[in-house]
Design a protein around this nucleic acid. Structure first.
Length: 239
RNA sequence: AGAAACCCCUA
């Protein structure tokens, strides 16, 4: 099984050759939840989340028990498709399986509800977030980005960021800043954006592509072309 | 041996 999994990873991640990876998977004499999850994840990333979910259903029908790795991967596929009904079903299975307290699974649920809410409501996402027993930079980023992406409660994203800073136990990363700057741009809050920009510089992530692009977007929207240009000039990698 | 969060663009 270990050799098969390594081959699947080599073909899919290494050579981007999903077909060969799938052949190895299909020919494996014995499978376990690791090999199933690996194949589901790679199909979701390199092919189509829809096919990943199909394989997940095959996994269940074949009698294998998904674990927290499987659920976070499938929830992420579901989020990408915006399948809210399926997402809710997954949520209830996760709860029944006793996996809902895992931080990765919780993070995936927060993200799924944020992306699947038809009306852009963050209510379900926030409920999951508030009930999570532990948080890390990813769960904070997931909820902040959730508020930033629907555009109706960007101030909440900013308030959550303030809580992260007060708390002090979690260090924001480039993903956090990208989402937060998007929220600032949505409401054209230049003052807040500049403060956030300052923090990003202090933490050394202002030149990371996604942060830099978010800064350019923010300053562009606020008609600050010189500042946008400065953000562009310091990008590590321009594309 | 496997999982989760990110900007802009594509829209």
């Amino acid at each position: 099984i270990c050799v098969g999994c390594s081959l699947i990873d080599l073909f899919s991640k290494g050579f981007r050759d999903l077909e060969s990876a799938k052949k190895v998977f299909d020919l494996m004499p014995e499978k376990n939840s690791v090999s199933w999850t690996l194949m589901i994840t790679r199909i979701s990333q390199l092919d189509n989340p829809r096919n990943a979910i199909e394989l997940f259903l095959d996994m269940i029908l074949s009698g294998f028990i998904p674990d927290k790795f499987t659920y976070s991967s499938v929830l992420s596929a579901c989020a990408e498709l915006g399948w809210s009904q399926f997402g809710t079903q997954l949520h209830s299975i996760v709860v029944k399986s006793g996996l809902s307290s895992d931080v990765c699974v919780g993070c995936s649920l927060v993200d799924m509800y944020a992306k699947c809410a038809a009306d852009g409501s963050m209510i379900n996402s926030r409920k999951i977030f508030d009930r999570m027993p532990a948080h890390n930079v990813m769960s904070w980023t997931a909820i902040i980005t959730g508020y930033a992406q629907n555009g109706s409660s960007d101030m909440e994203a900013i308030e959550l960021y303030c809580r992260v800073m007060e708390d002090g136990s979690v260090k924001p990363n480039h993903f956090t800043f990208a989402g937060l700057l998007k929220a600032c741009a949505n409401v054209s809050n230049l003052d807040m954006g500049r403060q956030v920009h300052c923090h990003a510089v202090k933490l050394g992530v202002a030149s990371v592509n996604c942060v830099g692009n978010a800064l350019i977007n923010l300053y562009g929207r606020c008609d600050r072309i010189e500042e946008a240009q400065k953000a562009f000039e310091v990008l590590f990698e321009k594309n």
